Amino acid sequence: KKKYVIKVYFEDTGKEVEIEAESKEEALEAAKRLAEELGLKIKKVEIYP
């Protein structure tokens, strides 16, 4: 089964997080949740198959 690796870059902090997920949708949801939890804004998202 294919996994996606999503790199999320946050504004202000210069922080980046990698998330593995089964689908792009799932990964983007996780990225949004994470940003909310951390109180950060997402600057850029890169998706690698």
Rank of each mutant, 00 (worst) to 15 (best):
T13M: 15
D12P: 10
A35L: 02
A35Q: 03
K43V: 11
E25A: 05
K24H: 09
K15V: 15
T13P: 15
E16I: 15
K1C: 15
L28E: 06
E18W: 05
T13S: 15
A27L: 09
F10T: 01
K43D: 14
E46F: 07
K44W: 13
I42P: 01
A21P: 00
E36G: 10
K1A: 13
E29D: 10
D12L: 13
E37T: 12
K32T: 10
E36A: 10
E22Y: 12
E46T: 10
P49S: 11
E20T: 08
F10D: 00
E16T: 12
E16A: 12
E11H: 14
L40R: 05
L40N: 02
K43E: 13
E29G: 05
R33D: 10
A35I: 02
F10N: 00
K7E: 01
F10K: 00
V17Q: 06
K1G: 15
A21L: 10
K2Y: 07
T13F: 09
K15F: 06
I42S: 00
V5G: 04
A30L: 11
E11A: 06
A27K: 00
E29P: 02
A30H: 10
D12C: 13
E46I: 10
T13C: 14
L38Y: 06
E29Q: 08
G14K: 15
K24Y: 12
K7C: 07
G39H: 08
K7F: 05
Y4P: 00
S23T: 14
I6M: 07
S23G: 04
I42E: 00
I6Q: 00
A21Q: 03
K43G: 09
E29C: 14
K43F: 13
I19M: 12
S23I: 03
E29W: 12
A31M: 03
E25W: 07
E20I: 07
L34K: 11
K43S: 07
K7S: 03
I19H: 02
A35E: 04
E25V: 10
I6C: 02
V8N: 00
A31K: 00
G39T: 02
K3V: 04
P49T: 13
R33Y: 12
L38D: 02
E20D: 06
L38I: 04
E16K: 11
K3C: 14
V17N: 03
E37R: 10
K41R: 15
K1N: 13
I19Y: 10
T13G: 08
P49D: 14
K3S: 15
A31L: 03
V45S: 02
F10L: 02
E22K: 04
S23Y: 03
T13I: 09
G39W: 01
A21N: 03
K44H: 14
Y9S: 09
E25L: 05
K43I: 14
Y4V: 14
P49H: 09
Y9P: 00
L38T: 03
E18P: 03
K3P: 15
E20H: 11
V8C: 02
K3M: 15
I6K: 00
E16L: 08
V17R: 09
E36W: 11
Y9L: 06
V5F: 12
E11C: 12
V8D: 00
E11F: 13
E11Y: 10
K7P: 00
V5N: 13
V8E: 00
T13N: 15
E22T: 08
L38P: 01
P49V: 04
G14W: 15
K43H: 12
E46L: 08
K32R: 04
E25D: 14
K3Y: 06
K1E: 09
L34P: 00
A30E: 10
A31N: 00
K43A: 11
L40A: 04
G39F: 02
K2I: 12
K32I: 13
A35D: 01
S23E: 06
E20R: 07
L40S: 04
I42N: 00
E22P: 13
K3Q: 11
A30D: 06
K7L: 07
A27C: 13
S23M: 03
E20Y: 13
Y9I: 09
Y4W: 05
R33M: 09
E20G: 07
V45M: 08
V8L: 10
G39C: 06
K41W: 04
K32L: 10
A31V: 13
G39S: 04
A35H: 01
G14R: 06
Y9Q: 09
K41F: 12
A27H: 01
E29I: 14
L28Q: 04
E11T: 10
K24N: 06
A35K: 01
K44D: 05
V5A: 07
G14N: 14
L28A: 06
E46N: 03
P49A: 05
E26H: 11
R33I: 13
Y48G: 04
P49E: 12
E18I: 14
K1I: 14
V8M: 04
L40M: 07
K24P: 08
P49L: 14
E16W: 13
K24I: 13
A27D: 00
K24D: 04
Y9R: 04
F10Y: 03
G14Q: 14
I47F: 08
K41E: 13
I19G: 02
L34D: 01
L28K: 06
G14C: 12
L38G: 02
E25R: 05
E29L: 11
V8I: 15
T13R: 07
P49Y: 15
E26V: 11
E20N: 11
S23N: 10
L34I: 07
E37D: 10
Y48K: 05
K32E: 10
G14I: 15
D12A: 05
K1V: 12
E11D: 13
D12S: 08
A30N: 13
V8K: 00
D12I: 14
Y48E: 06
V17I: 12
K7H: 06
V8W: 02
E18G: 04
V5C: 02
V5L: 12
V45W: 13
I47S: 03
E46D: 07
E29V: 08
F10S: 01
Y4I: 08
V8A: 02
G14L: 11
K1Y: 05
E29M: 07
V45I: 04
G14E: 09
I47M: 10
K43P: 01
G14V: 14
L38F: 07
P49C: 15
E36T: 13
E37C: 04
A30F: 10
K2Q: 15
Y4Q: 03
K43T: 13
K15G: 06
I47G: 03
K44A: 11
A21E: 09
E18V: 11
R33Q: 03
K15R: 08
Y9A: 03
K3E: 07
V8Q: 00
E18R: 04
I6A: 08
G39V: 02
E22D: 10
Y4C: 06
K24V: 11
E37L: 07
Y9K: 04
G14P: 08
K41M: 08
A30G: 10
K15D: 06
L40E: 07
F10E: 01
E29A: 14
E29S: 14
L34Y: 05
K2V: 09
K44Q: 13
K24R: 10
L34S: 04
E37S: 12
A31Q: 01
